[in-house]
Amino acid sequence: MGLGMIVASEIVRAKGHPNVTAKHKTTLEITRDCDLTLRGDCIIGVNADKAASNLSSDFKAALTSPRNILLIVLEAGGFKDYLIAHGSREITATDPRRIIIRRSSYVEPATIGVYATKAAGDLDRGLVNSLKSGDAVLTVKLYVLRLDDIEPVNP
């Protein structure tokens, strides 16, 4: 079976912005908004083609299973970074503007992952610097993996 079965996936595309700082220590956000102030230090992409509410119903349902995890792959400017988060029974993913991944357990309508291994401030700085260009394209690949399908590795 390998490392686990993908039960749902989504791709979100967003743009970079000169005010991307990615300094926030507890959250990471992608927004459909076109502008970004320096106060938005968790935002890594603007003008996204999807928000939490635009994710498929199958994807949202998969996020609510405690046996599933969310793998997030971020790509921009030839750089790539990864993080893992957990789902939660409380996830509704109904926000029409934002997608948020959190280190904490807090869930609100934009939240799609909790207990994440990284926040904006932990991302590869090459990736972050590439997002400071308004021409940059951020590709966010989201994979929900079923933990039940992960087999132990024998020594």
Rank of each mutant, 00 (worst) to 15 (best):
A93D: 08
E108S: 10
K132C: 06
N54Q: 06
P96H: 13
D148S: 14
G78K: 07
N129A: 10
L142T: 06
G121F: 12
R67A: 05
A22R: 03
V144Y: 01
T31E: 11
K60Y: 07
S88R: 09
L38R: 14
S105K: 07
L28C: 09
A22N: 02
E10S: 09
F79I: 01
L36E: 09
D148H: 01
E108C: 03
D148V: 05
P18K: 13
R98F: 02
K118Y: 04
D148P: 00
E10A: 09
L131S: 03
P66L: 11
D135Y: 12
N19W: 08
E29N: 08
E151W: 04
R146E: 09
R13V: 10
I44V: 14
A52G: 06
G40D: 05
D148A: 13
A110M: 04
I72W: 05
G113E: 09
G77H: 02
K118D: 08
V20C: 03
D122N: 15
D95A: 13
A61E: 14
L83K: 00
K23V: 10
D33F: 12
A93Q: 09
E29I: 06
L127F: 13
I91D: 08
G40Y: 04
H86E: 15
R98D: 15
K15C: 03
T139M: 08
R97S: 13
Y106F: 11
K80N: 02
R98T: 10
D58Y: 02
M5D: 10
I99A: 11
I84A: 12
S9D: 06
V114L: 01
K50N: 14
K50Y: 12
P109A: 01
D49G: 13
E10M: 04
I30F: 11
S105V: 02
D49F: 12
I100G: 00
V144R: 04
A52Q: 01
A52C: 10
L145V: 15
K50R: 15
L55M: 07
I69R: 07
R98P: 00
S56A: 08
H17P: 02
T37M: 10
E108T: 10
S105P: 00
V107C: 03
L147M: 14
I112C: 04
I69C: 05
G113T: 06
H86K: 15
I150C: 05
Y106V: 11
I150W: 06
V20G: 03
S57E: 13
A52T: 00
V128D: 05
S105A: 06
I30R: 14
I99W: 13
R102Q: 01
I30N: 11
D95Q: 11
F79P: 00
P96C: 14
L70A: 08
L63T: 13
E108P: 00
S104Y: 07
R13G: 00
S133K: 15
S130F: 07
A120D: 07
N47I: 01
A51R: 07
A76N: 01
A85Q: 07
G16N: 06
D35K: 08
G134P: 11
D149N: 14
L83F: 04
V107E: 01
A110F: 00
